[in-house]
Computed example of a mutant assay.
Amino acid sequence: MESGNDTQISEFFLLGFSEDPALQPLVFGLFLSMYLITVFGNLLILLAVSSDSRLHTPMYFFLANLSFVDICFTSTTVPKMLWNIRTQSNVITYEDCITQMYFFIHFAGLEFFLLTVMAYDRFMAICHPLHYTVIMNPRFCGLLVLVSWIMCVLNSLLQSLMMLRLSFCTHLHVPHFFCELNEMLQLACSDTFLSNLVMYFATVLLGGAPLAGILYSYSKIVSCIRRISSAQGKYKAFSTCASHLSVVSLFFCTSLGVYLSSAATQSSLSSAAASVMYTVVTPMLNPFIYSLRNRDIKRALKRIIGVPAM
């Protein structure tokens, strides 16, 4: 007979990547470095966009939102892991685990939606340049971000409520460095059919649909670029999309791969390693990807740090 969640469970144990004490300082140093680079790099992007009036355009408005979400997204998992390594404890309370799961799902969903909105912005800029400023006005851009937030709040709330109805028995060791939804479902001793159904439906709807929107946008963009007569015009149009395509490929492939392949036989270590790619590596690389080839961002950053812009 299935028991409800009258659970005596008060804490879980996050196993992380390795229990070898000799490797803990290496893991701590590596993730601390990546976390600091992520926060510092994305804060620079936020500062550059907010301080330079020439960057007050839809493209940079969405980029600033993505940088903010990247900071929050990484901060839901890495600080807790660093704290556990520092204190030599892998304990996380039940309440903290559910809270971490809620914010992780929320900010992961926002990454999906913002990357989709940015693809739509590039589609409008390249394929409909004459109508771009009219359609992509500040009110519409703000509405796109607001709808993204609302959708992600509802999804993360639903997933968390589905988790609260489950009961957990004796095996409380999470083979991950954070309370990942799929791993937590596998630890439950009550029926998880409905929770799994909701998780996969949300993954297809909130992951697959944005990906389909991005692919559609870029199919139209490629078609428009091919019709541009000059080689310089083609290069300029493609260069505005290259950074975004790099981030989309890295984030979508790893994040969707973790969830959609969870039904197959897969080691916990490989799942955790794949999760690092979209939870830590991608947010860390975003500032570099979007700034290294962007003259406007580089000019704004040089002005901030006091270097004369050429």
Rank of each mutant, 00 (worst) to 15 (best):
Y35Q: 07
S148R: 03
S229T: 15
P58F: 11
A242L: 12
M59G: 02
S230M: 07
R165P: 00
L197W: 04
Y35L: 09
V69H: 01
E11M: 06
L206N: 10
L194T: 15
S53E: 08
L206Y: 06
Y94R: 10
Q88L: 11
K298N: 08
F13V: 13
D6N: 12
A188R: 03
Y216I: 15
P25M: 10
V198K: 07
G306P: 05
E95N: 12
F68M: 14
I221A: 12
L14I: 07
F123P: 06
L256E: 00
P175G: 09
L46S: 10
I225R: 04
N294Y: 04
C224D: 00
M277Q: 14
L114C: 02
C152V: 12
A209P: 00
L130H: 06
A309H: 11
M81G: 03
F201K: 13
L26W: 03
A263Q: 04
H106K: 13
V248A: 03
L44V: 14
R165I: 06
M124H: 06
D6C: 09
H173K: 14
S243F: 03
I45F: 02
G213Y: 02
A231K: 13
Y216A: 15
F123L: 10
D6Q: 13
M162C: 12
P283M: 08
L143F: 08
Y132A: 09
T254L: 07
F103D: 01
H128L: 08
F113R: 14
S267K: 09
V222C: 12
T76L: 00
P175L: 06
V247Q: 03
S167D: 10
L44A: 11
S262M: 12
P287L: 05
T203H: 02
S223C: 12
K234S: 10
F140S: 02
I221G: 13
G306D: 05
F113V: 14
Y290Q: 08
R293C: 12
A242D: 05
T203M: 07
I9D: 01
E95Q: 14
N65Y: 14
L144H: 02
S223T: 11
I305C: 06
K298W: 06
L30M: 09
V91D: 07
G207K: 14
L285W: 03
A263V: 14
S270K: 13
P58H: 08
S75M: 09
N286A: 14
F112E: 00
N294V: 11
T7P: 02
A237F: 02
L187V: 10
G41D: 06
Y200E: 07
P287G: 11
R226M: 05
S267F: 09
L43E: 03
A272L: 06
S10I: 13
P21C: 08
P129N: 06
A119H: 07
P58C: 10
Q186C: 11
T170S: 04
V69Q: 02
V204M: 09
R122H: 04
L172S: 06
M81E: 05
S148E: 01
H171M: 05
F12E: 02
D121Y: 04
H173M: 12
S239E: 05
V198I: 14
N182A: 14
M124A: 09
G233V: 13
D96M: 06
H131W: 08
M163E: 02
H171E: 05
S53R: 12
